[in-house]
Design a protein around this nucleic acid. Structure first.
Length: 356
DNA sequence: TAGCCGTGGTG
DNA sequence: TCACCAAGGCT
């Protein structure tokens, strides 16, 4: 045990009391039913509250309950998710809704079977909605507990993960697991910040071994991360003589899965951007184009690499499009572009072409 | 275990 | 400018 039973009891009491006074007023906390909490937890995976908020409101308006979400077309769900990132979450959320909506009763066991619900999300929903005594471990909990314990290993390491899990389970308030879990996360999000922790405002500072050592921001210990490579990407605005543009839908499992894009891809060593552009259109859709002027150069970063996106105006020459390196394609007018979900890096192109 | 999967804010 | 990192899950 990392703490004595009297310390555990006092720490819980302080934390819960602090949470009940200081918690943020968030829409999914006003009526914490299964649907709202489920929706919020999917959106909050690796995503800040402020970024998820407008999406939560939009979803709740478009799909007021689990049944409405389950009945929606997949494309509509993805379009509403556009811009939020980690697009697999949209598909998993939709599949989870379709799985749960027909059930008379949903409980801890049913949640565990759903796609997109891992250990964190399962414990979060179960504790908040059903009052199940399951500890959550997320980025906030990792940081808060690593500091409380002055943990000697990075939380991502095997030893660190075990220690954090054990501490979270040990501290969990058995009679208010939902509030306790949210309190720990709220503390991490608003007080026990990655940089510049507000220790003087912290309700559990008396038990914090990192604060005791004098340099709380030195925890959690960091693991070196690999550098992000940079790639040169060519993309084509392929126009037919009637003015329509050729777009493609990306493969489901891939990066930006199920989203639509302007066809293109990575430049090979020694290849010109124009040649890469023509080659990628040929490989992806079986279409020959004449590459014209470059009209965009866009810098963009993803989670594990960065790109420069070079966009060329291209004239359609020949070949009937086929879905070779994509799952679907479409010839569309410029004013139809905004109906399709595009990755963020393509938004400047969509905005310009659709005249906004 | 470690790499893949987005986007936006921050210092 | 750039690294960091955020209510993680899947393979």
């Amino acid at each position: 045990m990392a703490f004595s039973s009297t310390d555990r009891a006092a720490l819980r009491k302080r934390l819960l009391s602090w949470y009940r006074r200081h918690r943020r007023d968030l829409p999914w906390r006003r009526e914490p039913d299964l649907y709202r909490v489920l929706l919020s937890e999917f959106m909050l995976q690796q995503t800040r509250v402020e970024q998820a908020l407008p999406y939560f409101e939009r979803f709740l308006k478009a799909f007021p309950d689990l049944r409405a979400l389950a009945a929606a077309p997949a494309q509509e769900v993805l379009k509403l998710w556009e811009g939020l990132g980690y697009y697999r979450r949209a598909r998993h959320l939709h599949e989870t809704a379709k799985r749960l909506a027909p059930l008379k009763q949903v409980g801890v066991a049913e949640l565990a079977e759903c796609p997109g619900i891992g250990p964190y999300t399962h414990a979060a929903i179960s504790s908040i909605v059903f009052g199940a005594a399951l500890p959550v471990v997320d980025g906030n909990v990792n940081r808060v507990l690593a500091r409380l314990l002055a943990l000697a290993e990075p939380p991502e390491s095997a030893k660190g993960r075990r220690a954090i899990r054990a501490a979270a389970a040990e501290l969990l308030a058995p009679r208010a697991p939902g509030d306790f879990n949210q309190a720990l996360m709220e503390l991490g999000a608003t007080v026990c910040l990655p940089r510049g922790p507000q220790c003087l405002l912290c309700p559990v500072q008396a038990w914090c071994r990192a604060k005791e050592r004098g340099t709380p921001e030195a925890w959690p210990l960091k693991r070196p991360k690999p550098a992000r490579p940079h790639k040169q990407i060519a993309a084509a605005i392929v126009r037919r003589r009637d003015g329509k543009i050729l777009i493609a839908q990306r493969l489901s499992g891939a990066l930006l899965g199920d989203l639509w894009e302007f066809p293109g891809g990575k430049r090979e060593p020694g290849e010109s951007l124009e040649a890469a552009c023509a080659r990628e259109v040929r490989e992806e859709l079986g279409v020959e184009v004449d590459v014209g002027a470059k009209v965009f150069e866009i810098e963009h970063g993803y989670s594990h690499f960065t790109i420069t996106l070079h966009v060329f105006e291209c004239a359609y020459r020949k070949g009937k499009p086929r879905a070779l390196g994509c799952q679907a394609f479409a010839w569309i007018r410029e004013d139809e572009l905004s109906r399709y979900p595009f990755p963020k890096a393509n938004h400047p192109i969509v905005a310009k072409l659709s005249g906004r």
